[in-house]
Simulated scan of single mutants.
Amino acid sequence: SLIVFIMIVISLLLPMTCIVNGREAKPHSRPYMVSVQSKKSHICSGFLISDRFVMTAAHCRENFQVLTVVLGAHDLQKNNENSVRFTVESYHQHPDYTMGYYHNNILLLKVTNYIFGLQLEKYVQLNNNFKWISIPAEEGNIEAGSVCSVAGWRSLETNGRSSCHLMETNVKVMNNMECERKWGKKYFSTSQMMCVHGDGGSCDGDSGGPLVCGDTAVGVTSFGDPDLCNSLKLPEVYTKISAYILWMKNITG
């Protein structure tokens, strides 16, 4: 049908990013993880950085004008696990985001404080199922070789099996000059991006999720090799959050 064809085209246009060679995360062990959805279908990941803002990748909105966010989910097929869907009040895409090259690939979603017509005292009531994660307070690079982690839903292998459960894996931060050599300056910015390698990594469906080092989100899952998940030739690339602190402060206050 036409709808199926359109969805296939859209999936081919989006960068390839989700978790391969990973393990299922302990339910609600990453309470900052967010499923970014269109028409109640998962399209990207995101993460909570305050009681009213979710961070994700700018390219997640290229084909979807209206998004909702689901907090507190582990199995996306279950509606009875205390997850909550929020509508998005406003979208804040970086003004210098470039489609196709994924420079400045970062987007802030301000969640509404209205649910079922009722105004809440706070935007997101924090509990064991949803808490925000800290982001860098100042600009700086993560040391090459640092062991960090990524998490997400959907693809487990290139063009293969998918998971509705949150998956996770450990990765190592690569030297930024090595990333630039592999991708080239046209695609990779040493000041605004970082990349990782490991036995597992990102694949289809997890764009916008966090690269977590310690207890801090330092990167936003951006893009990777379009032909092979977890490629050694072209490692996964993340938007470096610390390069955007001033821009974020102007929006979030």
Rank of each mutant, 00 (worst) to 15 (best):
I49F: 03
N104P: 12
S207W: 01
V66Y: 15
P226A: 03
G145K: 02
N176G: 01
E138W: 14
N80K: 15
Y91D: 15
D96S: 00
Q65N: 14
V70L: 09
F188K: 06
F5L: 03
W132Q: 14
T190K: 06
S146M: 07
T190S: 11
A58H: 11
W132M: 07
M33P: 10
I8E: 05
L13K: 13
C164N: 04
F5R: 05
H103D: 06
H165S: 10
L108Y: 10
D206C: 01
N129K: 07
T56K: 08
I49P: 14
T158D: 01
S149I: 07
E138Q: 13
V196K: 02
D215E: 15
R181P: 10
T158N: 08
S231E: 09
S242G: 13
M174R: 06
T221G: 01
I133M: 12
M167R: 00
S222E: 07
K186Q: 11
Q65P: 14
S231T: 06
C195S: 03
G160K: 05
L48W: 06
R30K: 14
N250H: 12
D75T: 04
N82T: 07
G145S: 09
Y102N: 00
D51I: 01
K39N: 03
A73W: 06
S202C: 03
F223L: 09
I135R: 09
S41K: 01
L234I: 02
A25S: 15
Y114F: 02
L76A: 05
K39C: 03
D204Y: 00
Y97E: 05
V66Q: 15
L232R: 15
L211E: 11
E139I: 09
S35C: 05
V171Y: 01
P226V: 05
S50F: 04
Y123R: 13
N159Q: 03
K40G: 07
G22V: 00
S45H: 00
R181N: 13
K40V: 03
T87Q: 12
G184L: 13
R52I: 10
Y32S: 14
P15L: 06
A151D: 06
N79Q: 12
L156C: 00
D199T: 11
G214W: 14
K182V: 04
I6E: 03
